[in-house]
Design a protein around this nucleic acid. Structure first.
Lengths: 199, 199
DNA sequence: CCAACAAGTGAACCCCGGTTCAGACCTTCG
DNA sequence: CGAAGGTCTGAACCGGGGTTCACTTGTTGG
């Protein structure tokens, strides 16, 4: 057996793979999904086009991973905000604010994750992204309803509506870049009223 | 001058154009935007591929028109519901119900209009679609706030959030086909609470 | 009927970005 | 070192759907 993959080689492979994902991630953040060709990703990662295909079966799989990682980061941040101790209103406020602040800080990435047209394979990843947000809010709502802190309501529907409200209210700001300083507080107030939380 | 376009010819041209738009509309309703090739549209309209290009400069322009027409029909229906006399809650209920009922009755079309990946040219049309809905609700909210029927709030943000809430709450039903019978009433209740209307 | 021109046709073209693969180069271990 | 087998490269390939255009088929008015 004259060749066996050595730890050092494996490390280099992992590094290359990470560089590819990193380059793709950076590109999405800069130009959106539309501006991401495999050739450009390869250039960004300092490898040849073909090398990308030694790490991913196809483009969709690469960007599914990119979206998955980027998503997880976002969802974790919001989940952490939602889990903080406090009243329902405070937790909702923290969650919505976290979501909005991060989106407005990286608008192109947020737009890609939320609304940009993408391949079906990547779209599927996006559905799990939205689902993860729904789950965060659904849990929050269900617990609060059970504890009597919110009026009776279908937690799933309310959570979906909250996610949609956040996304839509930010689409214009994300396109226009910036948005009014009042947008986020107004959105927070909207969601708190919508869930029926005491302010 | 041996040839001049006669009224009869013009009528035939108009009919052909309408047939093309109609076929495209039907196709979107059946298979979504993704399943709409120009060749298929031509077949549906009983013309040759090239004929499509005698009526539209390119595919984007054709589908921009299709989306525009389909959109207008939807928006008009919701606007009519929003304009009915009654309390704010009643008008909101009528609007949301109209939107949801129509979307659930033609789920593929609704999905295409709301969320399916499309060309940028068509995407632009979709933005005006969402804008039109926002305007309906923004007007409703602004008037009601002025009349003291709703608490103070930014009408634009609230309207955008309502549109997003409606869209997101229906995305899953649109995919899964059907959705719970309770979804629409729950959504109505959510929106009424969100705007702060007396039930 | 015919000249002049419009409308319709659909097979061929083209573009473009994802994908491939034959060859160059590298790593391992006896 | 050299055999065995991996890894990398990037130019070439390819598919598919939008688009074109030389040609056929109307249509008009004299």
């Amino acid at each position: 057996m004259p060749y066996r993959r050595t730890p050092a080689v494996q490390e280099r492979l992992d590094a290359t793979r990470a560089a590819i994902v990193g380059a793709a991630h950076a590109l999405v953040g800069e130009r959106g999904y539309a501006g991401c060709s495999v050739a450009l990703v390869a250039t960004g990662a300092d490898v040849a086009t073909g090398t990308v295909y030694r790490h991913f079966p196809d483009k969709g799989a690469l960007f599914a991973e990119v979206f998955r990682v980027a998503t997880q980061r976002e969802v974790d941040a919001v989940a952490a905000a939602a889990a903080k101790p406090g009243t329902v209103a405070e937790r909702v406020e923290a969650s919505v604010e976290t979501f909005a602040r991060r989106a407005l800080r990286a608008p192109r990435l947020a737009y890609a994750l939320i609304a940009e047209p993408v391949d079906p394979q990547v779209e599927a990843e996006r559905l799990t992204y939205r689902r993860a947000y729904r789950d965060i809010f659904a849990t929050l709502v269900a617990d609060a309803v059970a504890a009597g802190d919110l009026p009776p309501q279908d937690a799933e529907v309310s959570a979906a509506a909250v996610v949609g409200a956040m996304a839509e209210a930010l689409v214009v700001p994300l396109h226009a870049g910036g948005g009014s300083r009042r947008t986020v507080p107004d959105l927070v107030a909207f969601v708190i009223r919508a869930l029926g939380a005491a302010p």
